[in-house]
């Protein structure tokens, strides 16, 4: 049962990573993902891995919780891996059967790709595990601020996100209550074919929809009564501030960017003998 649990993945401990500015974390994640795709050799990929390990350790989230988020994409990893290993072109052919062939370049590329996706998902989940949805919303709003100049409704968008986040737990509670109530009246949601199951959802969805509309109406009144009249002449209480932690973390991310670029340029010189196994083509 989904009861009284924060939705999303947020893992409530107080760590270095938790206390970073959400804007910084968002930018850092984007930078990290770009670096993952810029990297074209295993040295650079190892640098990415190192930063990820540092981030996970500094976040004090149990490694199991971080890995759990990867579970969802295992199928995608296997599928893309299989596709690449059999179809990637290359000179050193180990095995061939019709259009399927396994090459050295293919194997290297596949291993690289799988790690790249793996790190990408891990890094994103470090963000969602250490940042509350509310902080994320604040961060996104703040980052989008410049768009107000081209009349993009940043404030309205942020308010919609904030209200949505606010009502998710309320609506989950409500859904659970309705499910229980209909179950008590003998409703069966677990058996029958797909059409039967969809039909069985009607007694849940209709009350839920009606309730959502009722809530929306009441919320509208409450907002009116609290003098809401759009973004005009509105002040903002919350201000995000960069702190020393952000500076420290910034140095780490900066080091990663420098590292990845340097490895990309000089990866031949480090160990020329194994160069062909390191570079991804």
């Amino acid at each position: 049962m989904l009861n009284d649990v924060t939705f999303g993945q947020y893992y409530p401990v107080n760590s270095f990573v938790h206390r970073l500015d959400p804007r910084f974390k968002l930018i850092a994640l984007i930078a990290y993902i770009v670096m993952l795709f810029v990297a074209n050799n295993f040295y650079a990929l190892a640098a990415c891995a190192l930063l990820l390990v540092c981030a996970v350790i500094a976040s004090r989230v149990p490694i199991g919780s971080v890995l759990r988020s990867v579970k969802g994409i295992i199928f995608i990893l296997i599928f893309t891996g299989a596709l690449n290993i059999f179809f990637h072109s290359g000179q050193t052919v180990y095995w061939q059967w019709g259009i399927f062939k396994v090459t050295l370049e293919g194997i290297i590329f596949t291993v690289f790709l799988v790690f790249r996706l793996f790190f990408l998902v891990m890094a994103s989940s470090v963000l969602t595990l250490t940042t509350t949805p509310v902080a994320l919303t604040d961060g996104i709003e703040s980052l989008l601020k410049p768009l107000t100049f081209i009349k993009f409704p940043v404030h309205e968008l942020a308010l919609i996100m904030s209200i949505a986040l606010r009502f998710i737990p309320t609506l989950i509670d409500e859904t659970n209550r309705i499910i229980s109530a209909q179950k008590a009246r003998g409703a069966d949601f677990e058996s029958g074919n797909i059409f039967k199951r969809i039909k069985a959802m009607v007694p849940i969805l209709i009350p839920l929809l009606i309730s959502a509309f009722r809530r929306a109406e009441e919320l509208g009144d409450a907002m009116d009564a609290r003098c809401y009249s759009g973004s005009k002449n509105r002040t903002k209480y919350k201000k995000l501030r960069f702190g020393w932690r952000d500076l420290v973390a910034f140095l780490f991310v900066g080091a990663l960017i420098a590292g990845v670029i340097l490895f990309n340029i000089y990866c031949f010189d480090i160990y020329p003998q194994i160069y062909q196994y390191i570079k991804v083509t």
């Binding site: 509350t132 949805p133 509310v134 308010l159 904030s162 209200i163 986040l165 606010r166 919320l219 907002m223 609290r226 003098c227 809401y228 009249s229 509105r234 002040t235 903002k236 209480y237 919350k238």
Partner: peptide, 16 residues
């Protein structure tokens, strides 16, 4: 309530 943190919610009226 519009916000998921108490102080943000109380700030909503004065901000408006």
């Amino acid at each position: 309530m519009v916000a998921s943190v108490v102080e943000d919610d109380i700030a909503f009226g004065p901000e408006n």
